[in-house]
Each structure stands twice: as C-alpha cells, then as structure tokens.
C-alpha cells in the first residue's frame, strides 16, 4: 500500500537526480539547458563530450547505489539486524583489500578485480560472523566484530596502497571511493554483475521473507534456512564486490537505503528491495554531484560526502533501535 504511494515519487526523484547530475559540474557554461539539449540529442562538441562523461558518472553512481543498497538489504534481513551493511559487516573492507592485492600483482581487467573483491569480501564476512557467534550472536557483537576486522583490513590496505600508489595513478581514489575515474566498459561490467546479484535476491525474496517468522517456523514451511542465508551472503558480497571493483568502497548507502526503504514500505523484503535500490541510486547520484562541486575544481571522494551526511543517520538509527528493541 505504502510502497504504491512512494514508488511514483521516487521515480520522479530518480529522473530529477539524473537531470541534476547532468547539469552540475566544475566546468562552467554547461548547465541545465545543455543537459536538456543532451537528453534530447541536440548537443554537440565539447558540451556533448562533457555530458557523456557526466552521464557515465550518473550511471556508475546508479550501479554503485543499487549494489550497495541491495547488499545491505540482504544482510539486514538475514542477519535480522538494522545495523548490518556492507561496511559494518566487513565485506567492503575485505573486498577493498582483495582489489588492492590483485592490483599489486599487476594491471588487471574488471573480472579479476571483481573476483578478488568477492573473495576478500566473503572471507571477511565469514570471519566477522564466526567471531560474532563466539561472543553470543547479537547486534552489538556483530558490530564490534565487523569494526574490529575492518580496522585490521584497513591497516593492511593502507600498507599495500603505499606500495601501490606510485604504480597506479588514482589508486588512492579506490581507497576513498569515487566514480570520477570510471570508464564505460567498467561501468557496464559492474552493472551486469550488480544486476546478477539483484536478480538472485529477487528470486530468493519470498524465502528471505519467511525468516522473519524465525528459523523454526520458516523450516516448517519447507524453507531451507541455512541455504537461503548462505546464498544471500554470497549475493550480498557479490554486489558489494562489483561496486568496490569499479569505484572502491563507499559507506552508508548500504546502511541507510534499506533502513529508509523499510520505514517507507513496511518490512517485506520483496516490497522494500526495489525501493531501497532506487533510494540507494539517488543517494549515490546526489552524493557524487556534491563530491564534484564541494571543493571544485578538485574532486572530493564519494565516501567523504556519504560519511558526512550518513553518519547522523547512523546515530539516529542507533538511538531509535535502542528505544525500540533492547539489545
């Protein structure tokens, strides 16, 4: 019901964010008018080239936002934890370390980076869940385990980055997360990888929804609970890996969009997933626009923007979840 109410609004906002992304940038003289001309295929010359570049950033942001939102959705539902996201669960840090290690070995194509990120992300998630289980699986233990492991991996990543820095220009941007250096072929490949994960999650959606009944009742309905959980972990890690391999890790989008989608639609995974994906894309596109202009003509890292705007939301979720449910 509420999903039906919000869907048109979010669709309009989605197109508005694209128009915004095509209209705003460091270059003077290419604004909303040029963006509209481009949209209707009327632009040419430098203005057109610039718009093609901005479009690649908008599409990359869409892929990035969708991937992180879908990943966060899956994690929050199977871990039954509104604080779970690709960052807090450690997947993003693991994926980033995977990518940097792979880069250290030499130049690589997207597929190799994606697989390295997926391997790193899955291993980290496994470690986080194991540590958290030892400490009596809870929101708090998961959070602490995730943060602990992330610190270790970030340390390792920094060391590798120092080695890597001089070899690959823009490697630092990987560390910080940005879509400024993406190219169309990479956006396309990452998009396909994210789409594959999303399709997987959609196919699992009805089963994921039964988990809210508790494992016992879900099992009595014929759902193979451990399998559903494991598949969701793999799909969530794969979505984040695709994003990290393209643009590095970007925080908060995977946390905030599922949370907001759940607030808007009620809590069915099936209904909230598309809303979370659209919200995540919009957040990423708008954050990218801010990253472009906040210190123009320089570029701010995407994570810097999402952190500044996302951290207060995390605080809000913490306060609310403390008020609503006891840990």
């Amino acid at each position: 019901m509420r999903a039906r109410l919000w869907a048109p609004l979010l669709t309009v906002a989605f197109f508005a964010s694209y128009l915004l992304s095509l209209s705003v940038g460091a270059a003077p003289g290419v604004g909303p008018l040029e963006a509209l001309e481009f949209m209707f295929g009327l632009s040419s010359g430098i203005s057109r080239d610039l718009e093609v570049y901005r479009l690649s950033r908008a599409v990359a942001s869409t892929v990035l936002g969708s991937g992180l939102a879908a990943s966060g959705m899956g994690l929050q539902y199977v871990l039954r934890n509104p604080l779970a996201d690709p960052y807090l669960a450690g997947i993003a840090s693991g994926a980033l370390l995977g990518v940097t290690l792979e880069l250290l070995r030499g130049p690589h194509g997207f597929l190799a980076l994606y697989l390295a990120a997926l391997g790193g992300g899955l291993l980290t998630l496994l470690a986080v869940i194991s540590i958290s289980s030892f400490a009596g699986f809870s929101s708090l233990s998961l959070l602490v385990a995730g943060i602990t492991i992330s610190y270790v991996l970030s340390g390792a990543t920094m060391i590798v980055m120092i080695e890597l820095g001089p070899k690959i220009p823009g490697a630092l941007y990987w560390l910080f997360g940005s879509v400024a250096f993406v190219t169309w072929p990479i956006v396309l490949r990452s998009g396909v990888a994210v789409a594959a994960s999303v399709i997987g999650l959609v196919l699992l959606a009805r089963r994921i929804d039964t988990l809210l009944l508790g494992d016992e009742v879900a099992t009595s309905l014929g759902v193979r609970v451990p399998l559903v959980r494991a598949l969701t972990f793999v799909l969530a890690s794969a979505a984040t890996a695709a994003v990290v391999a393209m643009a590095g890790p970007v925080g908060f989008i995977g946390l905030v969009s599922p949370w907001a989608a759940r607030r808007l639609t009620g809590s069915s995974f099936r209904k909230a997933l598309p809303i979370a994906i659209v919200l995540g894309s919009e957040l990423a596109i708008v954050s990218d626009v801010i990253a472009r202009i906040i210190i123009a003509p320089s570029e701010a890292p995407l994570t810097a923007v999402t952190s500044i705007f996302g951290a207060p939301v995390l605080a809000l979720i913490l306060v609310r979840s403390r008020a609503e449910t006891s840990w």
């Binding site: 009805r206 508790g214 879900a218 759902v223 809590s267 609503e324 449910t325």
Partner: peptide
C-alpha cells in the same frame, strides 16, 4: 501449520508481514 512455543519473530516486522510470510507456499 506450525506454531512454536518460543517465538522468534522479527520485532521490526508488522502483523501483516507475519501473515504474508506464513503464506509463503
């Protein structure tokens, strides 16, 4: 239909979510 003694429902889910999940098959 099975109803356990010890409930382990997601506190964030609504009453209607529970029914919808129960209608899984």
């Amino acid at each position: 239909a099975y109803m356990p003694a010890q409930l382990s429902l997601d506190p964030l889910a609504t009453v209607d979510d529970v029914a919808e999940a129960m209608s899984y098959d």
